[in-house]
Design a protein around this nucleic acid. Structure first.
Lengths: 340, 340
DNA sequence: TACTAAGAGCGAAACGTTTCGCTTTGGAGG
DNA sequence: CCTCCAAAGCGAAACGTTTCGCTCTTAGTA
């Protein structure tokens, strides 16, 4: 039905091997090259990926396993990955595991069964057990955003230094004279949430302040959680003068909550948000945020996967730590010295 | 390296054909069935998808082409689709075409080259030309959210009745006594945006009101656009008493804009938003929204694709129109009669 | 003109499955 | 104990590539 390499051979009078070689970048005499090109166009030939995969054991397909597709941080990264891969002929098989470890393990198995050449994973499980089938099979793995210690030497990891990013954001608030600094953190089980909380604590202690549990609220990395925490923190600690919100969704929620309560930024509460996505740039007063380089994360991950797949001789570092920057806005005010 | 059907045959003493038949659901004597199962477990056998695809020309893979991955409406639907497909052994290859017609056409070709069994597409291009390679090849196509008239009889379409949803939302505002009703619409080129605007106009005219261009603002379906439009409309028409925002992102933006301007809902302006996503339910006052059945859209699309793939005898309707409902909140107030 | 590398071109085998068209088998009914 | 038939089992061919190990051309050199 569809044209095959054999049809091309028939039409051009050349041999199978020659056509195949040409298609894979080999050298062919100019006249023959023209003939092959002509035949391909005339017959509408496309290589059969099944046959090719059967011989080469390569699918030019990469699996992406993420905890949650409905999250702007995730989708921004995936968009970048997908773009980079597609331009090199790779397609992305995406599995949303709904933040469920069992589903995540199943997704990995499923993708391996589909013959993916590599796996990109923003892991839910902290043990890395779900990845062992991939490692056993020799499939390259790139971890996104979250490290898994026991796998550090077996997989690539791309992330930011969450502790120092959080520490610097908190230190900035302290430097501006704030003392009662609240934090809205993510789920306890999530790697980045732990590290961001740790960074906050380090900064507080370095300033001689013991973190007040009543100033910490867990917002589950969701808009609703951020919204609820903003209200809860204000109710529990009316004297809170600054707040650090540790992801984009919760920042959005907190801003909406503050607005509803007529709490003004930065006059009533100074705020540092997370992730410099479109909205953060547009609302007034402009938010001061910790900006993760999402585009670079995606690109770096795609690049690593491609290197592992196509240039096995190159041996890039296992760990890529990208830098988050504090993007100044107008949502933090400097406290009068007297009030400190 | 990996175990093949031949290894199973060797270990069990059975023939290739028997193993294959069993794997594909055929009948086999109980004793042999046990032997095969044992061998599969012992050897860790998994069917080779390339070989299988080569014979059957089926990849158990479906392509999904969408304009934009960073959009909650899109990702909610995709999550559902992916889930439904995966449970039936199908994987989803996702291509974000960045709202670019040329990229969209390329994505379709790319996916066909990958051998996808079906294509789900939320189309950017209105002509449907980009789908002709798929139709030529006989690959089933399901359109999401947006129809393409010339293809009505060749592809499946799953969407809501945008005109009537918008008409009813607007009519509700009119029924509550509002006359100066604004609308934030999406991009002119987008099917749903056109229809929603049309529904609004129909309702206004039915109430004897000629739509005021100064009460229409295009927010490009983005958070920033909704935010900007909310401010622009208030500036242009301070006497606007109600506003209809026609997608989720713009609704979020408008709410933030109103909050910043200290415009209270519903006291100063009544608001009907779009899409009943988590946030819409949680903010105060609760938003009145047009809720699209996103879960059902995803499920219906997946179901159609699966039927076309696995039950060619069934002939479902080409067009599936799902119902959007008006979910009442507290963001619309009834105007005093005198003010009408 | 003759010779020689290097470059082009070639056929056949192999990848792991499904499927076609048979043959064998087990056991129910007589 | 036979007969018979549906069910179960079978071998071989085919799917469309890539690749191995050759042979044949070609063009440059002597």
């Amino acid at each position: 039905m569809a044209a095959t390499i054999k049809d091309i051979a028939g039409r051009t009078g050349l041999g199978l091997a020659t056509i195949s070689k040409y298609l894979n970048g080999g050298n062919v005499r100019a006249a023959n090259r023209a003939a092959i090109d002509e035949a391909i166009a005339a017959l509408g030939y496309t290589a059969n990926n099944f046959a090719r995969g059967l011989k080469t054991n390569r699918s030019r397909t990469v699996g992406v396993v993420i905890p949650e597709l409905s999250n702007l941080f995730v989708t921004t990264i995936i968009t970048e990955i997908e773009d980079a891969l597609r331009s090199r002929g790779y397609a992305a098989l995406i599995c949303d595991c709904r933040t469920d470890e069992a589903l995540e393990a199943e997704a990995i198995r499923f993708l391996l069964g589909k013959g993916v050449d590599a796996i990109l994973n923003m892991p839910v499980g902290g043990t890395g057990r779900h990845l062992s089938p991939a490692l056993a099979k020799g499939t390259p793995v790139v971890l996104l955003d979250r490290a898994i210690e026991p796998l550090a030497s077996a997989v690539d990891t791309v992330m930011i230094d969450n502790i120092s990013a959080a520490r610097e954001a908190t230190a900035y608030l302290l430097r501006m004279g704030h003392r009662r600094v609240g934090i809205i953190v993510g789920p306890e089980a999530v790697y980045t949430a732990q590290r961001r909380l740790e960074g906050y604590r380090q900064a507080m202690r370095a300033a001689g302040i013991e973190p007040d549990p009543a100033l910490t609220c867990s917002g589950g990395y969701t808009i609703e959680g951020g919204y609820a925490c903003a209200k809860r923190l204000l109710a529990a600690r009316a004297d809170m003068t600054a707040l650090f919100v540790t992801n984009y969704e919760m920042t959005l929620g907190a801003v909406i909550g503050f607005n509803e309560l007529r709490v003004r930024m930065p006059d009533d509460v100074s705020v540092i948000g997370f992730d410099n996505l479109p909205l953060s740039r547009v609302i007034r007063p402009a938010l001061t945020t910790v900006a993760q380089p999402m585009t670079e994360i995606g690109r770096a991950a795609a690049r690593l996967a491609l290197i592992r797949l196509e240039s096995p001789s190159e041996q890039p570092e296992r760990l890529t730590v990208l830098e988050a920057r504090l993007v100044p806005g107008e949502s933090v005010r400097e406290m009068a010295m007297g009030r400190v």
